[in-house]
Design a protein around this nucleic acid. Sequence first.
DNA 1: GCCGTTTTCGGCCCGACTGTTTTCAGTCG
Length: 582
Amino acid sequence: MYQNINKELAKIFNNMSHIYEFLDDKFRALAYARAAQIIEDLPDDIRNYVATGKINDIRGIGSHTVDKILEYIKTGKIQKYEELKKLIPEDFLDLMEVPGFGPKTLKRIYEELGINNKKDLIEALKDGRVAKLKGFGEKKVQNMLKGLELYEASKNRLILWEALQIGETLLAKLKQLKEIKNIELAGSLRRRKETIGDIDILVSCDDKDRDKIINYFVNLEDVKEVLAKGDTRASVIIKEKDREVDLRVLKPEEWGSGLQYFTGSKEHNVHFREIAKQKGLKVSEYGVFDAKTEKRLAGATEEEVYEIVGMQWIPPEMREDRGEIELALKKNIPRLVELEDIKGDLHCHSTWTDGFNKIEEIAKFLLENYKYEYFAITDHSKAVKVAHGLTEEDVLKQIEEIDKINKKLGFEFIKKGIEVDIMLDGSLDLPDEILAKLDWVVASIHTHFNRDNTDRIIKAMENPYVCVIGHPTGRTIGVREGYPLSDEIFKVAKETSTALEINAQPLRMDLPDMMIKKAVEYGVKLVISTDSHSLGNFAYMKIGVANARRGWAKKEDILNTYSWNEIKKFIQAKRKKFGVKV
DNA sequence: GCCGTTTTCGGCCCGACTGTTTTCAGTCG
């Protein structure tokens, strides 16, 4: 059992990258930034890669970096980093993340004004000393102060769900302009990252309509402040959450290359362009060109942009440079799961515990608003006292009620389920005789978040009646990190025919994308669930599917894309394996 | 510091905007 060290190591390499930027060694800076990103993205503790020797096969991590990783594992320190830190004021490492505070700017302030901390720097910005430096000026200083203010305010990024709401609202308003030919959300929002910094909107139109569209955008009632406004783009701060929204305006023939470029990720684009370059092509947001003749070869659609570089179109959710480019070159991009594939929601709560709606109400709502074939009521069990969890008797009574409602509906729309609690020792807080009477059993951890919970989850998976592990890592985005888990859980999930949940609550998104990817590699079945506590929550399915796609999950990896009969086979197979009554 | 079907040396994605200039550097995405 271990505490994953990838994050701390990535942070160090990221800081080293900043220091090299400060020292004007931008290519070393780039190399370290890449190494940091790669390490942060690793699905496993880096020590496992060291132990198996796989560390030497990772593209972007060379021998010098490996040496530093080994040094860190052995001593808890990296000598080179300790030396580098002495070359830059401590505060500047964080400051370099602030818009307007680039390495050159900070260095000149340091060298010419002798300022080496954030407090003095703010003072010098305010009293005019910085503005007097050659090449600086009043406006630049104001922008730096503004950047600092914004940085402090937006340290917490928006969660995907909030960003999507904001983005789609703005999209709807812009769509009213008939001059707009194409429109899409771009950036990390289009890739459906779990947290979003800025919101990017892309439109295409004829040249003559550009001004009108940009002016319409910066004058929307949602806009609090205009940061920049040019011929091809505008940046604003919107009132809601003080968020930056960028609008880019493209020509119709540049739509594909522009959308590809502004969707990112940066790492994906850099890799993509490198490959294009090797093939004698030059890619920019304006199109794909022959590097020699400058002849324009593609750009109107994303498909043709990827195709001319010899690749399949890549779904935005995969564009993180995690191997998707290699797949696309081999024309092996999988058909990822889609919202329309989902046949039911297998985790929700009713008024029996902490939900807001009665079971019958939920059933009618889902029949009217979703094309689901089934859904499961999975209220809490008795250990969850704050939610008035169900006792054995309560479960039996709820089964009766569901039977009655199903009879009224004329078919078995509602499946009888439970979200049973996993105790500290891995046992469940309801007996097997009760679980055996239910159609669907979610087992979840709601206590002891500060320990490695691999053992508890494995023990729960070894219960023949547990169908799926709910929100497996227990994380809350921006609030609480998930508890450590070893890869053993994927192995045991596969062996015991237990599914893992992709919980779609906006603050959970649990499993996280990289663990979904790993589960898929292990051949583990997944269930995308909203964990709804009110009718509006069922809409979260959209971001659950998005998260699954970020983990490269296909339709067949997701259990609730199957009919109930097929799901029953999955459940029965597990019970058979454990030799209990099917 | 990384990487290699032209390379173990010499490259490392590309262009717009801003503020400061009067042709450009720095920053950003």
